[in-house]
Amino acid sequence: MVGYVLRILGKVVAGAVLLLALAYAVDWAVWRVHLSHGAGVATVTVDQVTVVALKGNKEEYYPDGSADVQCSRSMFPEGGDSPCWWLQRHRHVLVQE
């Protein structure tokens, strides 16, 4: 019984990994086509906050204003940039100092 459950669980995990790899490959290919047509990247305005470590495991936050950040128009991070959909939902960026 335990062997049967482990075998089914292994197949489910293998299928999920394969599906994720396929989704990433398709997303990368679509992003490369968009990039070749000049539409693979965009910019999003984010609010930057600098975090400074203090004594006693305390932190101090300093707002640095807004900045335009380059992002990839894809589901996954591509070309070293975060996806635009992620940055549009997380507009506060913490910069560690």
Rank of each mutant, 00 (worst) to 15 (best):
V12E: 05
P63R: 05
G40C: 01
R32F: 14
A23D: 12
P83L: 05
A67T: 08
C84E: 03
V51S: 07
Q88R: 10
Y62G: 02
G15P: 01
G38W: 02
L22C: 08
V69L: 06
A67D: 05
S72H: 00
D68S: 10
K58N: 07
E97Q: 11
A25M: 13
V52L: 07
V52M: 04
T50K: 15
H34D: 06
G79M: 02
V26C: 08
Y4V: 08
V44D: 04
E60C: 03
A42Q: 10
V93M: 02
L18S: 12
D47K: 09
V30E: 12
Y4T: 10
L54W: 04
L87P: 00
W31V: 00
V93L: 04
H37W: 12
Y61L: 08
A53F: 03
V33E: 11
A21T: 10
F76I: 01
L19M: 12
V17C: 13
V69Y: 02
E78R: 03
S74Y: 00
C71I: 00
V2W: 14
I8S: 11
L35V: 06
D68G: 05
Q70R: 10
Q96N: 10
M75T: 10
W28T: 05
Q70L: 09
L22H: 03
M1W: 04
G15Y: 00
R89N: 04
H37I: 09
R91S: 11
V52S: 02
G65V: 01
C71G: 01
L22S: 09
H90N: 14
H90E: 11
Q48R: 07
V93W: 04
A67V: 11
S66Q: 09
E59W: 11
V49N: 03
L9K: 14
V26H: 05
L87E: 01
L19G: 07
R7C: 15
R73W: 00
M75S: 14
Y24E: 06
H92K: 15
C84V: 02
A21Q: 06
C71S: 02
D27T: 02
E59K: 12
L94N: 13
Y24S: 07
V95K: 09
G10L: 05
V13S: 09
I8G: 08
V51C: 02
V69R: 01
C84A: 07
V2Q: 14
Q70Y: 10
